[in-house]
Structures are given as structure tokens and as C-alpha cells.
């Protein structure tokens, strides 16, 4: 390992969002590892992706350590399961003190569990709602 202890980015869950972020960061030259327990999911990765790939269940800390969580500066959690996302994000924050953590959650009622942590959550539901309200405002002006 290099002297700079934290430079790795771990992406857990190759959903459409996870795969897109993986490709983007890899193109920018970041040290990226993608983790997914389903072999098939790796097909979603773009050809431009040149980082590491680990087929494993991220809810097991041994696998997170294999992915290099001890030297991670960023963990991005984008599986399709909110509860797994919360658990992986909390482990990253509270056990491994990862400085930057992003998590995608479908259920915004669960945001309460992330209060007083450094975990940043992205809620597609809230983004869609805001976008809908934006569009409606524009439409109303045109009427």
C-alpha cells in the first residue's frame, strides 16, 4: 500500500446508478473497486471501466476488507435494497471511519437513521418529486 493511506473508491451494488458512477470515476483515473454479489451485474459495466471487480456479498465485513475499505476515501452504496445500503453505509462510517460516504435510498422515511452521521443520502423519490413540481410550475406559466 502507498503512503497516502486513503485513495480508494468502493462502489457497492452495480445498479444502473452504481455502474454509471463506476465508469465515470474510472475514466477520471480514480482507484475504483466495484462489489456486487451477482456475477451477471458486471455486464452492466461500460467497456471504459478499468477498475477492479469483486464478486462478493458486501454485508460481510471480510468482503468489504477485501475490497480495501480500510484504505477507502469514498464508499458509494447503490444496491437495490435500502436496508443493505444502510448497513453497508453505517459499517463504512462507524467501523472504518471512511471520510466520504454516499448512499442511494428509495424510502426517505429511513433518513432518520442517517442523522448525526457523515453519510450523504440520495433519494430518487424526492428528486423526482422536485422535478415534477418544477415542470408543473413551467407548464402553469404557459397556460
Amino acid at each position: 500500500m502507498s503512503k497516502n493511506p486513503r485513495k480508494r473508491t468502493i462502489i457497492v451494488g452495480l445498479s444502473r446508478l452504481g455502474s454509471a458512477i463506476a465508469a465515470k470515476l474510472s475514466e477520471q483515473g480514480e482507484d475504483v473497486v466495484v462489489v456486487d454479489k451477482d456475477d451477471d451485474s458486471f455486464r452492466k459495466l461500460a467497456n471504459t471501466y478499468s477498475g477492479y471487480q469483486l464478486i462478493a456479498d458486501a454485508v460481510d465485513i471480510d468482503n468489504l476488507e477485501k475490497a480495501g475499505i480500510k484504505t477507502a476515501k469514498t464508499v458509494i452504496v447503490t444496491t437495490d435494497d435500502d436496508n443493505i445500503n444502510i448497513m453497508v453505509a453505517e459499517i463504512s462510517a462507524m467501523i472504518y471511519n471512511v471520510p466520504h460516504i454516499f448512499v442511494r435510498l428509495h424510502d426517505n422515511d429511513k433518513s432518520v437513521l442517517l442523522d448525526s452521521t457523515n453519510i450523504h443520502a440520495i433519494y430518487p423519490f424526492l428528486l423526482s418529486l422536485a422535478e415534477f413540481e418544477n415542470i408543473m410550475k413551467k407548464e402553469e406559466k404557459n397556460i
Binding site: 435494497d81 435500502d82 436496508n83 443493505i84 444502510i86 448497513m87 429511513k110 432518520v112 437513521l113
Partner: peptide
């Protein structure tokens, strides 16, 4: 049977 579910249920 899924540990992550139990974690979230208990925390909530």
C-alpha cells in the same frame, strides 16, 4: 433471515 433487515428494524 436477512441481517440488514433486522438491523434497520431495530434501529427504527
Amino acid at each position: 433471515a436477512r441481517d440488514a433487515d433486522n438491523l434497520v428494524v431495530c434501529q427504527l
